[in-house]
């Protein structure tokens, strides 16, 4: 039985009519159309589906959409403001932290959440915060450097 859900994604309210067992990832991708969140494993083991809920990273493949009604959900698309990318997105670009890009939305959102919470994060803290976001291409060095470049820069 489908249910009417109201989701606050990227500062907009979306009404969707979905099966209650649908994951947030499925609803974002299929019902709303934010395909920036990716399904790399569907089992909570890769981080490509990471979104922010109330500013904290969450694996949307393990979360039912129904659980996060009325919460502030941010996807990678929501970091762009007025056509301008977020500083974290910019840092990833400028530091060459992006190769195939499939892990990128998840990595950027995890980094964003870390920096919001801990703007002076150390290298170890950065590595730990990103350990749940696998990347098969970059070897993480440039990803960590990108995040480090933002530490204490505000």
């Amino acid at each position: 039985m489908k249910r009417e859900l109201e989701l606050n994604v990227n500062d907009e309210l979306w009404e969707v009519n979905v099966e209650p067992h649908k994951t947030l990832l499925e609803v974002l991708r299929e019902d709303i159309g934010f395909t920036g969140a990716k399904e790399g494993c569907g089992l909570g083991a890769c981080g490509t589906c990471t979104v922010l809920v109330e500013g904290a990273p969450l694996l949307s493949c393990l979360t039912l959409a129904l659980e996060v009604q009325h919460k502030r959900i941010t996807t990678i698309e929501g970091l762009v403001e007025g056509g301008r990318p977020d500083p974290v997105q910019k840092a990833f670009i400028e530091h060459g932290a992006i190769q195939c890009g499939f892990c990128t939305p998840g990595n950027i959102l995890s980094a964003k959440a870390l920096l919001d919470r801990n703007p002076r994060a150390s290298r170890e803290e950065i590595e730990e915060a990103l350990a749940g976001n696998l990347c098969r291409c970059t070897g993480y060095q440039k990803i960590v450097e990108a995040v480090e470049s933002l530490v204490g820069s505000e």
Binding site: E77, Q89, I98, F102, I108
Partner: peptide, 17 residues
């Protein structure tokens, strides 16, 4: 940076799925 890095960083790059 790669020419499509902005598209990838903002979630606009489209993959098969």
């Amino acid at each position: 940076p790669q020419i499509d890095a902005l598209a990838k960083a903002t979630g606009q790059a489209k993959y098969t799925a």
